[in-house]
Amino acid sequence: MWKYILKRLLMMIPVLLGVTFLVFFIMNMTPGDPAAIILGDQATPEAIAQLREELGLNDPLLLRYVRYIVDMLHGDFGESYKNGISVASQVLDKFPNTAILAICGIFVALAIGIPVGIISARKQYSALDNVSMVLSLIGVSMPVFWLGLLLSLLFALKLGWFPSQGMGSGFLPLLRSLVLPAITLGTGSAATVARMTRSSMLEVIRQDYISTARSKGLSEKVITKRHMFRNALIPIVTAVGLQFGHLLGGAMLTETVFSWPGLGRLMIDSLNSKDIPMVLGSVLFMTIMFSFVNLFIDIVYAFIDPRIKSLYKKSGFKKKKAKGVAA
């Protein structure tokens, strides 16, 4: 098991290299000179040229990339072009805000998605099933920012129940300011989770071991919980994990609509000002979060399904090496 985790951690290195490489090159390919953006409209060409020299923008792209990677390996993610504050400190500063929102969002998604999915599967083709599946289809296809705007119009502007902008400080204000963005984030995810739960449950419902469970004289409640749901969990956990990974990276649209001071907004702002180190830093951070969530899910699999656990136990380094030699 530990070997498996170590292997997965090592596999993250090429992923991170690939992501930074891509982002680095794309950012440099886009039009606009960072030096000109930093110095503003009144800058003289001489000043721009001087700044370009200072930032090392005149060096070949590949050299700049290698320089960036070497700095990164020393724990230096560079400074923001815009305000000169270190990228790492800014990202880490915003991350807790995003994490709170992501956790609340995924909580909303689970609280709605899983019960709806289970009930729909148990009562397949009933009116209840049809209604909830249509609703979830709407939920999946609805643009998040639009839902956010609607919620904010109704509950913040018209009814005044919750703030429409920003993040409250102190426990209760924070909670109040979380409600609308969390519902906005959670609704889309809830729809995905509900659909995944339903289809995964339906697959399990027809299995022979469910007949066995029924023939034991267990109640439907126990059968649903103990026999169906646990077996249906893997695809559900996968879906929830992917959603959570996305949310942790900062929900750009939701954070923008509600002016939530999180990673998503940080990234949008840096993209607009072509703040390359900032963009790179936040993308890198998102990738790391996403990879960790994925790894965590794969570890959770082992606790859900004993067959996967025994598979992990077998997949150490030795086997791989033996295979490589044979090939």
Binding site: D208, Y209, T212, R230, N231, D305
Partner: peptide
């Protein structure tokens, strides 16, 4: 009742 196929009649995660 005892079912036909032992391979699929037991819950794999219990």
């Amino acid at each position: 009742m005892v079912f036909q196929d032992p391979m699929t009649s037991l819950n794999p995660v219990m």
